[in-house]
């Protein structure tokens, strides 16, 4: 029997998973998926910012388009740190395509206008 707290949403359900991968304590179906994923290959969303060379902001906020394997978090952060962008860029522009071959893009999460 494994116990964990679901992190899919802020509700934070207390999950229990038995030897047969039966999940209980979940409020929604995503809890089941989370629990099984978390035991086999844990994944996390990553958010950060990139440097703006020209635009109305100093930093542009970015996020992974999908969760990435937990053990790749710092490698992906290193890629994000290398990026510099110029405005204008609409929200949800691809900033890094297929980062480290993970089939995940780094996308912007805010509108960047020209200065």
């Amino acid at each position: 029997m494994d116990k964990m707290i679901c992190i899919v949403c802020p509700r934070g359900c207390h999950l229990e998973i038995d030897e047969n991968n039966n999940v209980t304590g979940n409020f929604c179906p995503r809890g089941v998926k989370y629990a099984i994923n978390e035991l086999s290959h844990p994944e996390r969303m990553i958010t950060s910012t990139v440097k703006v060379l020209s635009g109305d902001l100093k930093r542009l906020s970015v996020a992974t388009s999908k969760p990435i394997p937990k053990e790749k978090i710092f490698d992906v952060m290193n890629e994000i740190k290398k990026v510099e962008v110029r405005g204008p860029l609409p929200i949800n522009s691809v900033i890094i395509e297929n980062v480290l071959g993970l089939n995940v893009d780094i996308i912007s999460t805010r509108v960047l206008k020209e200065k």
Binding site: C9, P10, T47, A63, R110
Partner: peptide, 25 residues
Amino acid sequence: LLQCIHNGFGLHTYKEELTGPEYAN
């Protein structure tokens, strides 16, 4: 919201998980 760049916003309002700036937008 604009400085809360992490995700987890909007599950009730928009039925998806957004970052703070996306929710603000």
